[in-house]
Amino acid sequence: MRKHLLESLITPPVTEPAPAPDEAALAELARTVDGAARRRLGRSLAIRQVDAGSCNGCELEIHALSNPFYDLERFGLRFVASPRHADVLLVTGPVTWNMKAALERTYAATPEPKWVVAVGDCARDGGCFAGSYAIAGGVAAVLPVHLHICGCPPSPTQLLRALLALLTHPAHKLAQ
């Protein structure tokens, strides 16, 4: 144990420099977020992740955001256990009919102002599960979505770039 701790003291961190915020994400946020809510973005945000029907691939990459390479928390973004503590709902998967009510209740339990980020190709429009009797659709079929992150699954870098766009003050972006 001591050896491991000592080693951590003398070796440089593996954490990588922050990537640039995603331009497309900034543009989408500028469209979907307005007024008072925009002023609140750009600060530290608490994220509640909700799997609304995913294959669990998106979850794996969201998990990876917390590993030492990406270290999401250094940006003031952190995952919280309850929607009541959350500013952002990070929703994955096509929304299954069996999860629709739970997703709606989670949204209702999240205090305003709140933003919804739909992660993965499934969350956009149902992906390759679209048209199934068991699928209500993408996340936007159930909740207002402010930001989409594509990919199957999106890589941690793609996720990070899009989430950093949430921290880049959209008002500042608009003023440019």
Partner: peptide, 29 residues
């Protein structure tokens, strides 16, 4: 059953390439 996506019904009638894609998305790990 919460994440039931109806994959077996989607598979019925799919061509091989499409079916392989669906089968590969049953469990992301």
């Amino acid at each position: 059953g919460y994440v039931h996506k109806g994959i077996e019904r989607l598979l019925a009638g799919a061509d091989l390439a499409g079916a392989a894609k669906l089968a590969g998305r049953v469990s992301g790990d």
